[in-house]
Design a protein around this nucleic acid. Structure first.
Lengths: 230, 230
DNA sequence: CGGGGCTGTCACCGTTCTGTCACATGGCGC
DNA sequence: GCGCCATGTGACAGAACGGTGACAGCCCCG
């Protein structure tokens, strides 16, 4: 596989170099840009597979730039990870609104950065768009973000959707609450393990009218499992 | 599951004790160290599962110490959470390449501390590969945590599962009650040896409808054996 | 600023599991 | 056949575990 190209847009040189070094040393092809103009040039030259975008940029702010990228047909599909120094909730929300695929709060470890990048790349990666997961008549269309059973559409919340998507793409395997938190919620989210139970219940409740709730199985003492077998 | 060991490296005694108390009360096994020398000793004695490292330490600074830990082959894999009183950008930058896995800025709540520790520990190993153990038509799938015979799923409790998993991965060999307690229950658990008998019986009872109970054999005066031979 | 959707936490509850006991059963040496 | 001792077995109380309804905070949308 060709090395993935990462474009680092960050105005502070030391940080930029540190990131470049960290990513370069694990095999990514890194390009750097200090502001949105340089970024545009870089994108035009070598379309990156992912953009790391600093929150604070001189001139056009990172968040505005992210919006611009997501509006443009040519760049819309490039995943963006926002780097932000501030951890305030408000920032995070705005960051998500901007269309960023993920965000990382400074300070962060290189390991975490790499992990996030890989995670985001994985999402958009192979199989392209529009994968349809199916099990016992329960269908989940990743492209349209829709869950159906027969002709009926099943309404579920965002978290339940992510949970179901994870389960359906990793069936016949037990996951502990801990692992689910990691894989579905994200690695730097701090919530109670029992919260998983609640979302499992919400998911089951939504699937129950169609009889698909049996697919979500409890493995006492171990976690939960998605399985078509009883 | 064994309690996770946390090593707290912090020179100010009151803070150290507060942290110890907070972690101890939620079930972590806590060890304390006031400086990097004590920390080294503690690590040598009982390899911790995670290190809480104060930013400011007398002598070798926390950040230098973190770098040292991450260089050493033996300690590289131990996750580190840095405790820092200052939130300045400069410190963060330095923190970036110290190799720490997370950062917490003082003051912090015990709750947050615990949550982040759990989150970091969670990242560890996503669990190995799925192995399928088989004997005389009895199948045990470690990935899905399921025991089957033909098309039927055999329902067994957690302890019976662990017991069967142990037996199937160590077949044709006698284990005394004491050894089974050690390998299946855990090394520092106090239970009666006869308890093994009871779980053996429960396991046999569960396997009996499928005729697999003959695989669990009593060796009078020695213990039990899992064997496909009569 | 009030309603509605979503999320994370709790407290409470029923179920399942666990470790022990007491007693039954059974092999073995004498 | 007799006793002895190891093992099998049914019962049980307490603990652990997971299910569930309720609720408060949050944000978004009129």
């Amino acid at each position: 596989m060709n090395a993935k190209r990462i474009l680092v847009v960050e105005d502070e040189q030391p940080i930029r170099e540190m990131i470049s070094f960290a990513l370069g040393s694990v095999g990514f092809a890194v390009e750097e840009a200090a502001d949105s103009r340089q970024a545009q040039t870089a994108i035009a030259n070598h379309r990156p597979d992912l953009i790391l975008l600093d929150w604070m940029l001189p001139g056009v702010s990172g968040i505005d730039y992210a919006r611009r990228l997501k509006k443009d047909e040519l760049t819309r599909e490039i995943p963006i990870i926002m780097l932000t120094a501030r951890a305030e909730e408000e920032d995070k929300i705005q960051g998500l609104d901007s269309g960023a695929d993920d965000y990382i709060t400074k300070p962060f470890s290189p390991r975490e950065l790499v992990a996030r990048i890989k995670a985001v790349l994985r999402r958009g990666g192979p199989g392209g768009e529009g994968e349809v997961l199916e099990a016992s008549g329960l269908k989940l269309d990743t492209a349209s973000h829709r869950v159906t059973s027969g002709t009926a559409t099943i309404e579920i919340g965002p978290t339940e959707y992510r949970l179901l998507e994870f389960f359906m793409s990793h069936p016949e395997r037990v996951y502990s609450r801990s692992q689910l938190l990691d894989r579905v919620w994200g690695s730097n989210v701090y919530v109670e393990e029992r919260t998983v139970d609640v979302h499992i219940r919400r998911l089951r409740k939504a699937l129950e009218p169609y009889g698909h709730d049996v697919l979500i199985q409890t493995v006492r003492g171990a976690g939960y499992r998605f399985s078509t077998r009883l």
